[in-house]
């Protein structure tokens, strides 16, 4: 196990370097400089700005400086918001995104997995049809549609729930539903098919032949096996929940990281774009790592490494 963790840790660091490098070079490949905006700035101002942000250094030096920054969590100043660093924006925005992501993940695990299990165990009964129909529709509707519909129905038409911000528990309902909708449906489908497949396995028959009650057969023998593929999916999913919420944040006007990310895209604030991207990626890679380790505990076949 120890060896496995170390190997995974090393590959995680390599991935991060890779990600940071790609991001750096992509951003430096943008035609024109970061200050080439709609309004032409005087030459001298650009000169001064370039100097201030070390943009006239040779590329390799900028690269090394940047990588040093990445590994010391100093992601540099924002180009467009004077006096603000990327770190400031992340510190301001991430808690909102994380809270939202946490509740969405909770919803997925607490609702999606049980729904899938029930659907599989009640195969071809109304419970199964209900879950299957909801899940099928769920994976076909993009998050912004769920979000917009939610605002339209519950905020505009019924006036029950607020439509923007993130101050009370009522504010969470809409964004969490919009954010978790697709993955919830997907997890329910995945769990269902996984449980159905596991229930057909020979070792389930063995467990029944031992005279174990059906509940033990399901909980002990079926679920642990059935949840292995679900757990594999959860890693990238949790990361996506925490980071991929920019659409939902935009719709519900939540001041999370996604908001800064989207703003940096439209305002071409390259340092913020770079910084948030790397932060997102680092977070995502870490989550996948954590889930992979957890996965190693569930499935003994992983133990020996490869």
């Amino acid at each position: 196990m120890g060896k496995y963790i170390i190997r995974r840790l090393i590959s995680m660091i390599i991935t991060l370097v890779f990600v940071a490098s790609i991001t750096f070079f992509l951003m430096h490949a943008v035609p024109g400089g970061p200050f080439q905006s709609e309004k032409a700035l005087p030459e001298a101002v650009i000169q001064a700005l370039n100097e201030k942000y070390h943009l006239d250094d040779p590329l390799w030096k900028q690269y090394l400086d940047y990588m040093k920054g990445v590994f010391t969590f100093q992601l540099g100043p924002s180009f467009k918001r004077v006096g603000t660093t990327v770190n400031d924006l992340i510190i301001a925005g991430f808690p909102y995104s994380a809270k939202l992501g946490f509740f969405a993940t909770l919803a997925i695990v607490a609702l999606g997995i049980p729904a899938g299990i029930i659907s599989a165990l009640k195969s071809n009964k109304w419970q199964d049809y209900l879950v299957t129909i909801l899940a099928t529709v769920g994976v076909a509707v993009p998050s912004f549609v769920i979000g917009a519909l939610f605002i339209y129905v519950f905020s505009s038409k019924l006036g029950w729930l607020p439509s923007f911000g993130l101050t009370s528990w009522k504010h969470y309902i809409g964004p969490v539903i919009a954010l978790s909708g697709f993955s919830l449906a997907f997890v329910a489908r995945l769990t269902r098919s996984s449980v159905l497949e596991v229930m057909q396995q020979d070792y389930i028959r063995t467990a029944r032949a031992k005279g174990l009650p059906e509940i033990v057969v399901i909980v002990k023998h079926a679920l642990k096996n059935a949840l292995i593929p679900v757990v594999t999916y959860l890693g990238p999913m949790i990361a996506a929940m925490m980071t991929g919420s920019f659409i939902v944040e935009k719709i519900f006007a939540i001041p999370g990281m996604g908001k800064y990310f989207v703003e940096s895209v439209s305002s071409r604030d390259y340092t913020v774009l770079m910084g948030t991207t790397i932060f997102y990626a680092a977070f995502s890679i870490t989550m996948i790592f954590v889930v992979d380790i957890a996965y190693g505990f569930i499935d003994p076949r992983i133990k020996l490494g490869d």
Binding site: V19, L26, M27, A239, G244, L273, I288
Partner: peptide
């Protein structure tokens, strides 16, 4: 392991 949507955006 990279969230690919970010790179599409970049």
């Amino acid at each position: 392991t990279i969230p690919l949507m970010l790179y599409v955006i970049l």
